[in-house]
Design a protein around this nucleic acid. Sequence first.
DNA 1: TTTTTCACTTCTGATTTAGAAGCTAATCAA
DNA 2: TTGATTAGCTTCTAAATCAGAAGTGAAAAA
Lengths: 163, 163
Amino acid sequence: MTSKRLPDVDCAVAQALGVVGDLWSLMVLRNVFNGMHTFAALQDNLGVSSSVLSARLKTLCAAKVLVRQAATGDARSFEYHLTECGQDLYPVLIALMQWGEKWLPSQRGKRLTLIEKRSGKAILGARVLAQDGRVLKPRDVKVLPGPGIDPAFHALMTRTPAK
Amino acid sequence: MTSKRLPDVDCAVAQALGVVGDLWSLMVLRNVFNGMHTFAALQDNLGVSSSVLSARLKTLCAAKVLVRQAATGDARSFEYHLTECGQDLYPVLIALMQWGEKWLPSQRGKRLTLIEKRSGKAILGARVLAQDGRVLKPRDVKVLPGPGIDPAFHALMTRTPAK
DNA sequence: TTTTTCACTTCTGATTTAGAAGCTAATCAA
DNA sequence: TTGATTAGCTTCTAAATCAGAAGTGAAAAA
C-alpha cells in the first residue's frame, strides 16, 4: 500500500493522492509517459531499489493506472503501459513538470522542452479551462459541494469565514 | 525536509516532487486554495498531527510556496497565504482533483463541483494546451532535451527504443 | 551446459515518520 | 488578576518505510 496515513476525509484530492501521492509513483509514471516500459529501464533510470519499484508497479497496476503485459519476443519480460485512467494523469504530470521547470530551474538551463509533434512548436502547458476554452485563475473558480461531500469536510469548509 | 530519498537525476518533476510530492503538502495546499489560512483550521480539517503540519508548513514556506504573515487582531495567530509560486500549483491541484473525482468516485455521488464564479457554470478542468489553445493529448506531445538536461537521464531516455 | 538476464521476493539494519504529550506566550472570561 | 483557553510549536518514542544485499526461478544467450 502506498500509504496508510491518508486523511479519512472523503475528498477527491486525498483519494488521488492515495494512488499517486508518492514520490516514486509519479516518477515511474513520468518515465512510462516518456516511453520506458520495462522494469530494468525504470530501475536503471530512477535509481530506486527493486523492492520499492516492484511494490509501486504493483500498486499502480492494482489501481488500474498501469497494465502489465508480456513483452513480445522475450517471455521473461513484461511491459507496463498506461491505461485510459493512467493517461488521464497527463495534465497532472505536465503541470508538475512545468512548475518545476519554472520555479526550481537547473543552473544549466532548461532541462526539457515540450513540443507539439505536428507543428514542432513549444506547447503552452497545463491550464485550467472554462467550458468555452478560456484560461481560468484560482480566483475565477469556486468550489461547490456535491451530493457526495463528506459532511465533516463541508462543515469545516464553510466554518472558516472566507477572507 | 520533505524527503531525502529524491532521485538525484536533475529532473523538473523530481524537483517539484521534492517540494510537493508529499501527501500532506498537497492536502495543505488544497485547503489553502479553498480559503483555510490558519494552523488550527488546517489541523482540524486534515486530522494531521501538529508536528507534521508544522513541518510541512515550514517546508512550504521555505520553498516560497506559502508565506506566513501575522494575522490581524490576534498576536499569536499567523496566516498562511499562497505566493505567486504557490498559485502556479493551481493546475496541479485541479488536475488531481478531477482525476480523483473521475476515477475514484464516492459512492454517494459527486463530492465537489468546480464552477466559474462569473457564469456559475461548471468548468472544463485542467488540460494540456498548445500555443493556440487547442487541447493536446499525450501522443500529440514530444519531450525534447534542453541545455540543462542531465546526461544520464538523456542517455536512458534515448536508449530504450520508443515503442 | 554454463552463464547471464529478467523480474521479482525476502531479509535486515538504518532512516524517517507519525502521533501523543508537553510547552510557552497571548487572549479571554470572571 | 486569576484561571481557563487558544494558537502554534517542539520533543519524544514507537512504528513504518526504505535501500541494499542476497536469493529465486524461468528464459535466453554463449
